[in-house]
Nucleic acid binder design. Structure first.
Lengths: 192, 192
DNA sequence: CGATTTTTTGAATCATATCAACGTACGTGG
DNA sequence: CCACGTACGTTGATATGATTCAAAAAATCG
């Protein structure tokens, strides 16, 4: 249990066996079936979820009922609505499972105690959020600056495993396109 | 000197006078005239810059020579190309001054030493990057999910001081629109 | 196999970009 | 302090690209 979590943790900050045991006390495992929610709009986000296995998506729903995918999460990634988690405000996002998934949850009091008691946990948190920030900046830059074809090519190059496992219309949503448009873009690309 | 920097720092993590003195040793002041570069594409980003006074913009330039603004920075904000700073890779961004500006610089060795020697600096860094992450997520969400009119209204509500001080075509660039389109959107909004 | 979801295709519509011209404000050097 | 040049914003006409709606084809699941 928690293999991938600690593998990921140790790759960022090396833990002693004692520290590892200490941190384990703050973790909760959770399984999610496909289509089950981890978080629903209007609820407060109570946990940060590390994905041991499976795939999830975080998304908002607009006035016309369209989903807009903010983030995908696969094995080794962390998913949450950090804003709601940190402020205690109701979330404007939904998070649900695209596949049957296994998660490691850290709730808020656990997070706060870990920050106080385990200095390496703060470092881990800092490195994690920094990585997430850089990934999002790359995404934002390409949305603003690159033509759609290039953006899709970048996406498939960067996340081939997402392309394989996730339906195309969700990738369209992630890219801010209609499914029809993405379909046509793929045809244009492949006809070269 | 460094008033705003420490005011900002203390609002996030309270420092003792000794710690403040210690940190001061790692800081370098720098003045920038309007239009001067802090960072040019192709160079490695050597510093994290805290803005004491003035306004800057970070942007990329595409194949057609168009600027795409990634981020604005005003007093109290931090600006940098974190990716280049952390990895040592050449930057793909430019950062320059929109107004005459005064900065507080932290270079890489200073940053690394501070992380090791001053635990509160790590906390400060974590909180800073978390704030930047949340702000960028909000921006991304609104790009993907909201109609342009609403996005512009949100922007002016959130950053009235940027709207006042920065030419409109730069705001168009930040929003991923042509200057003409933003002009027309403003007319549509004001005619209601 | 049948039912459901996903992807593709076509046609009409809508939004934004582009190109060009004009008006205005601003700051600088004479 | 004025005049000129540059940068900025607005407007119109046209072109381009994405969305929407509808339907059919293809793939997936139980």
């Amino acid at each position: 249990m928690y293999e991938l979590f600690f593998q990921n943790f140790n790759s960022k900050v090396e833990l002693t066996p004692e520290e590892e045991a200490q941190i384990k006390n703050y973790l909760t495992p959770k399984k999610l079936k496909k289509k089950q929610y981890l978080l629903q709009e209007g609820d407060v986000c109570k946990t940060i979820a590390f994905i041991e296995k499976g795939a999830l998506k975080a998304y908002s729903v607009d006035d016309n009922g369209n989903e807009h995918i903010i983030q995908f999460g696969l094995e080794g990634w962390t998913i949450s609505d950090l804003y709601s988690f940190l402020t205690g405000e109701p979330s404007t996002y939904n998070i649900d499972a695209i596949e049957d998934s296994e998660l490691v949850l850290i709730n808020k009091s656990a997070h706060e105690e870990l920050l106080l008691k385990v200095p390496k946990y703060e470092t881990y948190t800092r490195l994690n959020i920094t990585g997430a920030y850089l990934a999002m900046q790359k995404r934002l830059t390409s949305i603003i600056g690159s033509p759609v074809e290039e953006r899709y090519a970048n996406f498939t190059a960067l996340y081939p495993n997402i392309v394989q496992r996730v339906p195309q219309h969700m990738i369209a949503s992630y890219m801010g396109l209609s499914p029809e448009t993405l379909s046509r873009i793929r045809r244009r690309i492949s006809s070269k």
